[in-house]
């Protein structure tokens, strides 16, 4: 029964991942979002070994080159270097609620909202789409903040 083994392994990996995500994120909805990115990352990135808050921090702070918006070389450009603080839109001055889950527990609990923001702001800051691993790293970093 060759096909069974990979399926079992996959199921084990997914359930293990789910436990890790829930523990790391502290919210079932956020855990589901992270699990989704983990599954994508496994498929996209060979040797994917879980998300890293440290990589997420580097992504958040930047500076990055090649973004669509020259004024925003990092997420921190609008969200400030302290993700628990209130951000400010670089052009309009509009307040942005904190990114850190500790300061804003609703962050990363609406999958459509999360995808919408990544879709836009990865282009604005990086000049390209983010990988699933980057998205998971980012959420992991801010979940611990």
């Amino acid at each position: 029964m060759r096909p069974t083994k990979p399926i079992l392994l996959l199921a084990a990996a997914v359930s293990l991942g789910a436990g890790v995500a829930l523990a790391a994120s502290g919210d079932p909805e956020r855990a589901r979002i992270l699990d989704g990115y983990a599954a994508q990352a496994k498929a996209q990135t060979p040797g994917f070994a879980g998300f890293s808050a440290e990589r997420g921090r580097a992504l958040y702070l930047g500076p990055h080159a090649g973004g669509k918006v020259a004024d925003t070389p990092g997420c921190a450009s609008c969200h400030t270097r302290d993700p628990a603080g209130t951000g400010r839109h670089y052009k309009t001055g509009r307040d942005i609620l904190p990114m850190a889950v500790s300061a804003n527990p609703k962050r990363f609990t609406d999958p459509a909202e999360v995808e919408k923001r990544f879709e836009r702001d990865c282009v604005n800051v990086l000049g390209r789409a983010c990988t699933a691993q980057e998205k998971g790293d980012f959420i992991t970093f801010l979940s611990n903040r």
Binding site: K68, V69, K91, A112, K116, R120, D121, V123
Partner: peptide, 9 residues
């Protein structure tokens, strides 16, 4: 959108 990507679903 005035220089930003503001795409929506």
């Amino acid at each position: 959108h005035f220089g930003d990507n503001a795409s929506l679903p």
